[in-house]
Design a binder for these strands. Structure first.
Lengths: 184, 184
DNA sequence: ATGATTTTTTGATCTAGGTCAAAAATCATT
DNA sequence: AATGATTTTTGACCTAGATCAAAAAATCAT
């Protein structure tokens, strides 16, 4: 996790200390509901090992917004940042081990370590890039293109994700996705 | 523009000064290509009056990523943040008046005013929220739903945008959009 | 291991929205 | 105001992918 920070800022010893002190290691088993949309999201998770997903529910159906893999932060973005309710749930696709950080602790870090603000700005920049890429990829019209793009963006993890979740991520039906996989 | 900053941070007099000093007022007429994808984006525009759009070109067709209206910053996000090439173009939908800020000046501000980092973090938070909302809205399957959602999110400006741009934003054809508008 | 549950595949049919084409309306320029 | 260019609308037809249904395969719990 500290390595991830160091991609963006230089970590001073005291900041490193505070970070390690304020973070707790958690383990979830497969299929665990890590965040429920009926609560405000107060925790952010840095995935050490495993796989999670952010999804919402529409007409009783799960719609996957995106998947989160190793070395990424996961939370319900609006809920966590604005400390208000939002539509997203988070669960694990596999047994997952991650570091957990509370909003409160994060706020403390922002207040005492100005370089944390910079880290936030820079890392949000890469996130923004992902989101934009996602938006642009959703303009693909053919289901095959969508699927190919998915395989490219989730290169190392796409085979670990069940078909139903992928199809809800792509906005196509399971049947169609299954047929796409069948050919070639 | 200063008001916009004050939604997120308290503006000190010297920062206010530097900001107004480093920003220049520009006027573009309708249809002006403000940013070309063949260049790295070095400027960010705060729209005072008017309407712009961010779009890319695929198979010779323009695909609108989103529209930008009064009191918003526009730039080619990745290109501007990472100072590298990206696929997006920016043009004006109407005659537009805006404040222009260079990356260089922005960097200067980040270096000399720590509260600017905070502004960036917080305002990127709201942007992230918009993006996420967009991603979620792109999961609508029926064209009618998509259009209704568009009208809601661009409540005050949606009637100022030509049909072709709206359809490319929604990922449906002009013909379909025209028919949707015709009924009721 | 074994039966139960869940996930994936396969098949048959249907439909929303795409494509192509041309007319009508709106806009811009002299 | 007139002309040409661009945008929007309307019509006829077609296709990719949705829906419904049921079999096959994989995964899970005891």
């Amino acid at each position: 996790m500290l390595q991830h920070f160091e991609k963006y800022i230089k970590l001073s010893a005291p900041l490193k200390d505070e970070l390690t002190k304020r973070v707790t290691l958690k383990t979830f088993k497969k299929g665990h509901l890590v965040h429920n949309a009926d609560k405000v999201c107060t925790k952010s998770y840095f995935i050490q090992k495993g796989l999670m997903r952010l999804y919402s529910i529409k007409d009783g159906k799960e719609i996957t917004a995106f998947f989160c893999a190793e070395n990424e932060w996961v939370n319900s973005p609006n809920s966590f940042i604005q400390q208000q309710l939002d539509i997203y749930y988070i669960d694990t696709i596999e047994a997952t081990e991650c570091y957990c950080l509370n909003v409160g602790d994060l706020v403390y870090l922002f207040e005492h370590f100005p370089e944390m603000e910079q880290y936030a700005r820079l890392s949000m920049g890469t996130n923004l890039a992902y989101y934009l890429e996602r938006i642009s990829s959703m303009h693909f019209t053919r289901a095959t293109e969508k699927y190919q793009h998915f395989c490219k963006t989730y290169q190392d993890v796409h085979h670990r994700i069940p078909l139903g979740m992928v199809s809800s991520y792509l906005g196509i039906t399971q049947e169609t996705l299954s047929r796409i996989r069948a050919e070639k």
